[in-house]
Design a protein around this nucleic acid. Structure first.
Length: 252
DNA sequence: AGATCGCCCCGCCATT
DNA sequence: TGAATGGCGGGGCGAT
């Protein structure tokens, strides 16, 4: 695999009998994996692995953003890399992988909250135990904490009637309005209003596709006070007006 | 954190 | 009658 900026990959061997030859930076090495063996990969590096024997791994991909977020949440210096001795055993990771694997084997029953929390647990554990070089000084993060992010998004969703202002939400997070807007943008990649608009459009797409509601009612349900404004906003976001979008969604 | 200010989102109306 | 488009003013958003 050629190098990419996808972050890191942690592989946890669930049973034994796997062997691989890894070629990286022109060097090759042989590794044997028992149950509970782990390896870590930085997607920044070119990577080639010739696999032999059984392959029974849980693979977890960790983005750099997730790594940064985990570092910020524990108020520590940001970790730049994750490193471990390939093939070393790690009982904790093995158990975490077991729990995660059991949950995602039945996706229809899986609790999104549980999987999210497991992701946080695994990432935090990786930072604590395999965090490599760190930034010299703790980065003063302007990202929202997970608590504030969740609270802000919940308040924005409840704001469909327009009764809650951005200042109210910032207050609820004990932040100034300007700081909150910036932190929200750096956390989600969107300003609060842009994020809310994306939520509304997403809701509208579902109603257009799966219901027979006229546009006026779709607009109302999605928090748009009048149909003309809804049509305009939808067309700007999706590139075509809602009626056209609906007909095309039905025919494809 | 708080003040400022330009911009655009929103709601309303009209028209096709 | 429903959907799409356009104009317009006020107020809140978002950047500084």
């Amino acid at each position: 695999m050629p190098a990419t900026d996808r972050g890191f990959l942690v592989g946890v061997s669930m049973s034994g009998g796997h062997t691989r030859r890894i070629t990286q930076n022109g060097r090759s090495s042989h590794h044997h994996f028992d149950a509970e063996s782990v390896y870590l990969r930085d997607f920044c590096d070119d990577y080639r692995a010739d696999l032999t024997g059984a392959f029974d791994f849980v693979l977890v991909e960790v983005s750099r953003a997730a790594l940064d977020s985990a570092c910020d949440d524990r108020r520590g210096a940001r970790v730049r890399s994750l490193e471990c001795v390939t093939g070393m055993r790690d009982q904790v990771l093995h158990h975490l992988a077991l729990a995660l694997g059991a949950a995602i084997e039945r996706p229809q029953q899986a609790s999104r909250l549980f999987i999210d929390q497991m992701s946080v647990a695994i990432t935090t554990y990786l930072v604590d135990n395999y965090g490599g070089s760190t930034s010299a000084a703790p980065v003063s993060s302007r990202r929202l904490s997970r608590l504030h992010e969740g609270r802000a998004k919940a308040m924005l969703r409840s704001r469909l009637d327009g009764s809650v202002s951005i200042a109210d939400i910032a207050d609820a997070c004990s932040l100034s309005r300007s700081y909150f807007i910036r932190a929200f943008r750096e956390t989600t990649g969107k300003t609060p209003l842009q994020w809310l608009l994306a939520e509304r459009i997403s809701l509208a797409r579902g109603l257009l596709r799966d219901s027979e509601l006229p546009l006026t009612e779709v607009a109302d349900v999605c928090g748009f006070a009048d149909q003309s404004h809804f049509t305009r906003a939808f067309a700007k976001y999706e590139g075509q007006p809602p009626g056209v979008w609906r007909r095309r969604a039905r025919t494809t």
